[in-house]
Amino acid sequence: MRISARADYAVRAALELAVRQEDGDPVKAETIAVAQAIPHKFLEGILGDLRRAGVVDSRRGGGGGYRLARAASAITVADVIRAVDGPIVSVRGERPTGLSYQGTAEPLLPLWIALRANVRRILEGVTLADLAADALPQPVRDLAAEPESWENP
């Protein structure tokens, strides 16, 4: 699995909104771009995708900007990634459930389904509130603590 720059930037932008949202004022795209070192024009497109997906709201004008559309505890990392990149795990651009294999390749389908299930379990189990509080769920912390997790074979 590959996390695109677009998905990485989207999660960082949403996290920035989660952290800054406590004062209730919308946050300008430029503020997010500077805080997270994201190219401003690229960020505008990402924020548009997040708005269309219902992850963020926007307000125009001098006091305008962006804010999360729901509580940070109700938005998962998976929600953010899907908003900008589509399905979490795809094979050749298709969801694994839409694939079929024959012959010796038949065992691939359950492998891709299992991969998708594990990735979804992690990304759907972590909310923006978890990240904002630096409080990843224990199973995620346990996986990240395994030395093999940090090695590139």
Rank of each mutant, 00 (worst) to 15 (best):
G65I: 13
Q138T: 14
A35P: 03
G24E: 11
R67Q: 14
P153A: 09
S100P: 01
A35C: 09
S100V: 14
R12I: 04
D23K: 10
A7K: 06
I3G: 03
R2P: 05
R59G: 08
V126L: 08
L115W: 02
G48D: 15
E151D: 09
A14D: 04
A145T: 03
D8Q: 09
P139I: 06
G63A: 15
K41H: 01
I122D: 02
P137C: 12
V91W: 09
G65R: 12
A33F: 00
D142G: 01
Y66M: 12
G64A: 05
E148G: 01
A33R: 03
S90A: 14
R51N: 12
V77M: 05
S73D: 14
R52F: 08
R59M: 12
A33D: 04
A29R: 03
V56K: 01
A144Q: 09
L99G: 11
I113G: 00
D23F: 11
D85T: 05
P153K: 08
N152L: 02
R60V: 09
D49C: 11
D49W: 01
R82D: 03
V126R: 07
E148S: 07
R2L: 14
L109C: 13
I113F: 02
G48Q: 15
L115I: 13
A78Q: 08
G64E: 13
T104R: 13
G63N: 14
R20Q: 08
E151P: 00
V84R: 06
P107H: 15
R116K: 09
A13Y: 06
V140I: 10
V89G: 07
G125E: 12
S58W: 04
E30Q: 14
